[in-house]
Design a protein around this nucleic acid. Structure first.
Lengths: 166, 166
DNA sequence: TTTATTTTGAAACGTCCGGTCCAGAAATAA
DNA sequence: TTATTTCTGGACCGGACGTTTCAAAATAAA
């Protein structure tokens, strides 16, 4: 999973994978069938784990859960390589329906997690707000990849959120 | 440019390029030197053209320039393949400083174009608002690639913008 | 120990990659 | 009509790719 995360699907070779897993080629193929099959499993694993973490962030946030979630999303564990699912959607979704499907589910889970912690004072806007928060956080991933300093991104996010939640 | 836009850098082969350009391999190499050189020129071309179009959208918008810009950004000419520069940043920026640099310039130009049309009632927040609008529009590109219907995205954007500009 | 089963490393397969090369066609100049 | 330069199609290069194969080694069963 980590190798795919770092390099993407196409740029990851069988040698990269077997080396990282400490497996011979024959064992690899008898265990996973093909490169793509392992990749899809890695994607699913990443998504499940990521959503679980995000929910934990939402549940254990001290003051502002929306804030904490946006920070977590815009500054994922992978560092500068961003969110594995966004990377894979960008690289593959238009040509690979399976990846697109996993991506859609992931994004919907993010939105839903936002929706749960948004102040339901105006219930008719909760869904759109959740969608806006998601898009905002996801958009900053691109800024970060291009080299914008994390500090400035966090600041922008905070400001935007302040305005959005008013 | 179109081929790189559709398939990304790695997935585009020399055959793809020469076929699309109607050029022989020899002519290609004597004209461009290598694949990467053409790619960088294509990226620059895309950026220049994209920013020019965005400024035109900003200048000729009937009622709400911010709105028009966000719609234009989130629904680029390329259709489901999104924005070429965001795609390339996602694929290459962490490992290719030249691409990262072009990407940074492009994003800064987008932000600056937003900044110019934002109501300067609170000048200290203009920059952050511009950054937020950019991130929002860019973020929706991922949703779209995963298959979310364009209509729902446009709606979310409109709502978010209404809240953000209040 | 002998036999049967599973796991392994390494080599090989066919294909495609980016890039080079060169004989000859085409265009230009003398 | 020649002589010279410029261009081009297609063969070719070494290497990397994902995948298959298979004999030998390790393990388990008898």
């Amino acid at each position: 999973m980590k190798v795919f995360w770092q390099k993407g699907f196409e740029a990851t070779s069988l040698d990269d994978l077997t080396k990282a897993m400490g497996l011979s080629r024959s064992s690899f193929y008898s265990a996973f069938g093909c490169k793509q099959s392992l990749f899809l499993q890695a994607l699913e694993h990443y998504s499940k784990n990521g959503i679980r973490n995000l929910r934990k962030v939402a549940d254990t946030a001290e003051d502002d859960a929306v804030d904490a979630m946006m920070q977590a999303l815009s500054d994922p564990k992978g560092g500068p390589q961003g969110c594995m699912l966004i990377n894979c959607i960008t690289e593959l979704a238009p040509h690979d329906e399976k990846v697109a499907e996993i991506g859609r589910r992931h994004l919907e889970n993010i939105e839903e997690t936002f929706a749960k912690v948004i102040d339901p004072e105006h219930p008719e806007t909760v869904r759109d707000k959740a969608s806006a928060y998601s898009s905002l956080a996801i958009g900053t991933l691109a800024l970060r990849k291009a080299g914008m300093p994390a500090e400035r991104i966090a600041n922008t996010l905070k400001q935007a959120k302040t305005i959005l939640s008013s």
